[in-house]
Design a protein around this nucleic acid. Structure first.
Lengths: 328, 328
DNA sequence: CTGTTAGCGCATTCAT
DNA sequence: ATGAATGCGCTAACAG
């Protein structure tokens, strides 16, 4: 591997000059630049990022923390982040937190030692204060943190939930349950709130219709089973995410309840699996890829000290009607 | 951030000594060690990996290249790799290649500049020679490369395919088609070969029963549609992967062909989606997580210059019978 | 416009 | 057993 010194010798200039043309910093005579460029080419020189990082304290690499890449919502997010990072010459390190604050902290510590430039947190058990102590660009994705200083991108969770519940109502449902996600998870709370916005004013509503499903398919199946046993007249379910919606579908199927005739179901997220189940899942689709890409662009701006247009983005969701609701 | 120098001052020793206790290299008096350790603790010192890497030429980070993390087979693989890397103090950089040799090369170049310690390639359009020029530990995962020098972990593709086809036969199928994966992809070739092993000796067999589906759901749906139109008497399909199998299911469903009564289908991989479709997909399951974990362990051994027990691992697959074949 | 030089933080001879 | 000095490859003053 050629070093900057080799280049400088071959070109007959100093390393400083080479560094200048490399980084387009400071003045350098056109002809000298040509010589340097030529030397670089003949030596097939490529700068050593580690050395550069040591003096820079920047690595052009960022960390992406997800709860679990195996969870079908996150691969697309990760793909988006990676795509734009790649585009801008950054490299992305993936971390699975399993929603554990301790694991997250460990990760962050490990990456700080490596002079990571910034973080995208699609998983956070952390408080705003903890995030501030990172002392490093961070954008929170699909989650929220109680802070108006940390940039965030989410989608219109509450509005989407509202629309979903309204659709259920419009389709004639007379008792709509809600499978909710983990408490204290902002998006789960918002979706629940959206459900409440419309359900609460209905006479059939009572709080027993809201049951926890932990964004988990199995848990959702069990929850739905007991729910339907207790309230057999439930004819609509709004699930906090698609995974739980699919869990609910399975429960209904084992009980011999036909979808959507006797039970309509709507999920949230718009993951690919929704189009694979039968009937296909009606869902409130988030612009997953866009969310990831936007977060990535924001982070890069922060790293490169460019101003952010906004600290908070809430992207539009789209209600996609498919087989679990459409009644001809 | 405290540096090694701060520690040495506080402990009243030289930086060399601190480095020695940090790396357990060379002798150091027990008492001095205690002093150093104490200083480290009170300063909350943590070594700077970048500086270390500059002199070491090692970063404790590896690269994982997949075709597309969005493809449901890879998240679990990535999770496995990340888990064991994390366990051993390594960090993993994720790259999506989209099966493009150029993108792979770019990636590899970018990571070499960063002194990456090694690579796991779960995607390769590269030749053995190209891989050798990396001059860095590499293990190839779920793919093959024509070389007996590059460590590899795969599963028993051919045997699995054979078993699948035999099961179809045993269930009374009298004309079995094969949706094959991309040509020149070793695992696709092997699976096709396994199919041939048993199909070829049947009288109904002819090469028109093998159609390309590119490991892609949509392509598989289309391929199945035309296939069933041309040969309406096909009553069994062995798909080279689960994604294509699901594509085939959709095709059958739109044609009103009932599964498994009139058409039995078997996939390959054992991804989670297979349990979500209805009927649930019979498949040849690979030990995806184990494959990823094994590859990771192998890579670490190579990086740390420990001997490898074997350069080639071919893990067992498991035929899981579910709804798309079981006929009571 | 260009060269010299001092870090960046750590590992590692080479002495002692 | 420990310290001083040098190098890893590059950036960024500073001087010219």
């Amino acid at each position: 591997m050629a070093t900057i010194r080799d280049v400088s010798k071959l070109a007959g200039v100093s390393v400083a000059t080479v560094s200048r043309v490399l980084n387009r910093s400071g003045y350098v005579h056109e002809e000298t630049e040509r010589k340097v460029l030529k030397a670089i080419k003949t030596l097939n020189y490529t700068p050593n990022f580690v050395a550069r990082s040591l003096s820079n304290k920047r690595t052009s690499t960022i960390g992406l923390m997800v709860p679990d890449i195996t969870n079908p919502f996150f691969p697309e997010l990760a793909r988006a982040v990676e795509d734009v990072m790649q585009l801008y010459g950054y490299t992305t390190i993936l971390g699975n937190s399993d929603e554990s604050a301790q694991k997250e902290k460990q990760y962050i510590a490990a990456l700080k030692q490596r002079y990571i430039d910034g973080f995208i947190l699609a998983s956070t058990a952390l408080t705003a204060d903890e995030v501030h102590t990172f002392d490093m660009p961070v954008v929170v994705l699909d989650r929220a943190i109680l802070s108006d200083k940390v940039p965030m991108v989410t989608s219109k969770n509450r509005e989407g939930a509202r629309k979903a519940t309204e659709l259920l109502l419009a389709q004639g449902c007379r008792k709509i349950a809600h499978l909710r996600g983990p408490v204290q998870l902002m998006n789960a709370d918002e979706r629940c709130r959206g459900y409440l916005d419309v359900a609460e004013r209905e006479e059939w509503f009572h709080s027993g219709l809201i049951v926890p499903g932990n964004y988990d398919m199995k848990r959702a199946t069990e929850a739905t089973l007991t729910l339907l046993k207790e309230y057999p007249d439930i004819d609509g379910i709004f699930a906090g995410n698609d995974t739980m919606a699919i869990g609910a579908m399975r429960a209904a199927q084992t009980l011999g309840i036909s979808i959507p005739e006797n039970l309509a179901i709507i999920g949230f997220d718009g993951i690919a699996m929704g189009e694979i189940v039968y009937p296909e899942l009606t869902t409130v689709a988030q612009p997953i890829y866009d969310m990831g890409a936007l977060a990535a662009r924001m982070l890069i701006k922060m790293i490169e000290r460019q101003p952010l247009d906004s600290l908070y983005y809430e992207l539009d969701v789209q209600l996609i009607e498919r087989g679990t609701t459409r009644r001809v």
